[in-house]
Amino acid sequence: MKFLGKEIASPFVLASGILGISASSMLRAVRDGAGMVTTKSLSLTPRAGHDSPIIAEFDGGLTNSVGLTNPGIYEGLEEVEKYKRETDAPIIVSIFGRHIDDFAELAKLVNQSSADFIELNLSCPNVEDEFSRPFALDIHKVGKIVASVSRVTTIPFLTKLSPNAPNIIDIAKHAEEKGSHGATLINTLGHGMVIDIYTAKPVLKNHFGGISGPAIKPLAVKIVHDAYKRLNTPIIGTGGVTTGNDAIEMLMVGATTVGVGTAVYYRGVDVFKALDNELNAFIQQSEFTHWSELIGRVHRD
């Protein structure tokens, strides 16, 4: 099975923000069964991110406010080189900028590296106070960024969008028209809040954060379902996938590959092996011979 021209051994993708600082942890995800990995979002300069607590659990998942911790694009790309020396499994470099022009500058640097793909993180909800509204909420800004990146890169790139935009499907289509080679749907939802009732205070140091995990899965499934009908490019379906059955749902509505993030919290880094096993068990008991046959199944008569 190929994803944007690169061979992948499994549909599971380590989502951005989870364990993606070091080559060693991303290689570990690959050894454990991930087909592709995504780095933590890299910026032009290093960022410490928010202070802990950066995660607060609730019954349906996590709220997180990591605040885009990263060592900066230059050190981040050194990890990419370390990673590519060890494996052929594709690596997606996630980038984010403070200003519209930053994305093209970052993409140029990634383009000179051994990275396989770029992901534009236009939708992190956790730095709104610092950077104002995420670009992903504004269709024109998304178009501008995508066009600027398209002009400077030769490697394919994906656009990661926010479920907070009511017109997310229109935005995804617009990004595609401006040159995006695929969409990562969806980033975390909200802001959400978790309150400690004994102290009457928010748990997160930053008070609120993006919602991930099983609670947002039906939303992600619906968005991928709708996007599949409009887009001609592949989708990394991301949002609350925790089990093989969740992944099957995501593939059936039209995801080409499946992002895995919060499931690492629930099931450890070995989750990729477990997901591969659960998916294969389903395939063996069904009329299908390969997971790629599941893609977009619900759209057939």
Binding site: L19, V66, T69, V269
Partner: peptide, 22 residues
């Protein structure tokens, strides 16, 4: 250690990718 539960990656040790908090 930022998260303490094996997801943020701050405490990962090279080259094995061992997650120290877990």
């Amino acid at each position: 250690m930022k998260c303490g539960v094996g997801i943020c990656g701050s405490c990962v040790l090279d080259p094995t990718g061992l997650i120290l908090c877990q």
